[in-house]
Design a protein around this nucleic acid. Structure first.
Length: 399
RNA sequence: GCUGGGAUAGUGAAGCGGUCAAACACGUCAGACUGUAAAUCUGAUGGCUUAUGCCUUCGUAGGUUCGAAUCCUACUCCCAGCA
């Protein structure tokens, strides 16, 4: 069982609200999906994840394949049961690791930061852990250096074993520093892999009719190029996916535009997921252009590293000025952290390297981003989206 | 009291005649983080500063030397052993 219903739309824009129905529950969209790469949201218990009003969790097939192994998760009754998360789950295909273990680039580039020449910044072959060929990717495990190979079929089998409600086709995530010719070649490969992923998933569904339906999302690449992005939307849009993921490296300033290019072409009755994005300005831009869900490591990663969201921007809570600040991070924030702890205490925990620091900061950050998306959803329903966007972002980026 | 050993920047600790404002670690300060090789990484850290610049530092006070954190003398304090 998998279904997506659009509930309301924003006049004259692609933004909408809706519901994704999965075997493990509904997701009200737009929704922020919390990342739990290794079958846990770092530094948070599932109760805490629920407490920040997360609707779903996204794990990673590559990591779980390496450890503890997808077969074990299957034996445990699937991802949700294994990790004690009762709601909907997603898994990423492992495609992102082609970038992060391969060329090793930043995924999002701010405008002027790409002045460096390709060979000045590209990871040299000897330090790479991922190598792409036409049929798949050979990975060197980041855990022990052992060699592993992912093909579209293999990724689907792994994700089938893990058993998330929504899974992603195996794709190649290129770097913005790759040449146009390479982007063309890579996009063709990703589209072949998309078809192979789809075929394999259909086969697996047929072979295991007793299993809950796993929705498969195709992933659009094409980097910063309009023609390639539109090609991706046209070709994948014609295929029988349950939804779409928009992926790839992109220039921050282009984000909304890229999403609009593809969402104007993709079938509008299918959910669109933006992979790996959660900065507030990006969230507004994405939702405005019709994104229904997105996931990101940022709230937990940044939180564990001492950075917390406020309405006036993100701040490092470890800064000296919080030493004697006995207020919560945000005065009227309803999250567990702000309801119970002061900046001074959280700063102390970070300075003392106590693990509770990362937990409290992650709780706050996840709550903050999820609440933002919840507020945006409400603003689409009552038509105040643009007002919220302007007032919210003006304040956040004022500094 | 005697005999050894030692005192170096916020802390620990290298250095034992010049290339020393002084390695390294920790700490401190600041910054970064967008499908998690991330509880990680980067930078600064004597003062003044744009500085390949100046000033003040290696327990204290003298001395030797062109030149001393490094050698000598005295003193102060610390540690160990012996009385």
């Amino acid at each position: 069982m998998f279904k997506f219903q659009v509930k309301s739309r924003l006049d004259g824009a692609l933004a909408r609200t809706g519901v994704i129905k999965t075997p493990h529950g509904d997701i009200k969209t737009p929704a922020f999906i919390v990342v739990g790469t290794k079958a846990n949201v770092k530094a948070m218990t599932p109760e805490q994840v629920k407490g920040v009003h997360a609707q779903a969790v996204l794990a990673n097939a590559y990591h779980l394949y390496l450890q503890p192994g997808h077969a074990l998760i299957e034996e445990a009754g699937g991802l949700g049961s294994f990790m004690n998360w009762k709601g909907p789950t997603f898994t990423d295909s492992g495609g992102f690791q082609i970038l992060s273990l391969g060329s090793g680039f930043k995924k999002v580039l701010a405008m002027q930061s790409d002045e460096l020449a390709y060979d000045e910044v590209i990871a040299p072959a000897k330090t790479r852990h991922a190598f792409v060929d036409d049929d798949g990717v050979t990975f060197k495990s980041h855990l022990d250096g052992s060699k592993h190979r992912f093909t579209p079929e293999h990724s689907m089998q792994v994700q089938h074993s893990i058993g998330a409600d929504i899974i992603f086709a195996f794709d190649e995530l290129t770097s913005l520093h790759d040449s146009y010719d390479y982007q063309v070649e890579s996009l063709d490969r990703t589209h072949r892999w998309a078809q192979q992923s789809l075929d394999e998933v259909k086969k697996l569904r047929k072979a295991h009719p007793e299993r809950p339906y796993q929705a498969l999302f195709g992933v659009l690449q094409g980097a910063q190029y309009e023609d390639l992005r539109k090609k991706a939307a046209t070709e994948l849009g014609a295929m029988d996916f349950d939804g779409y993921g928009i992926g790839g490296a992109l220039e921050k300033s282009q984000m909304g535009e890229i999403i609009r290019w593809v969402n104007e072409i993709l079938p509008e009755n299918k959910p669109k997921h933006l992979l790996g994005i959660s900065e507030p300005d990006d969230i507004f831009a994405a939702i405005e252009q019709g994104i229904d869900t997105f996931d990101c490591v940022s709230p937990t990663r940044v939180g564990r590293n001492g950075s917390v969201y406020t309405y006036d921007g993100r701040v490092n809570i470890t800064a000296k000025r919080f030493e004697k600040d006995f207020n919560p991070i945000i005065n009227d924030c309803q999250c567990y952290t702000c309801q119970n702890y002061t900046c001074a205490y959280i700063r102390h925990l970070f300075k003392a390297k106590e693990t509770l620091a990362g937990t409290l900061a992650s709780i706050h950050n996840e709550y903050f981003i999820i609440k933002l998306v919840d507020d945006i959803r409400a603003s689409i329903e009552d038509g105040s989206f643009y007002t919220l966007q302007k007032t919210w972002l003006d304040r956040y980026y004022k500094r």
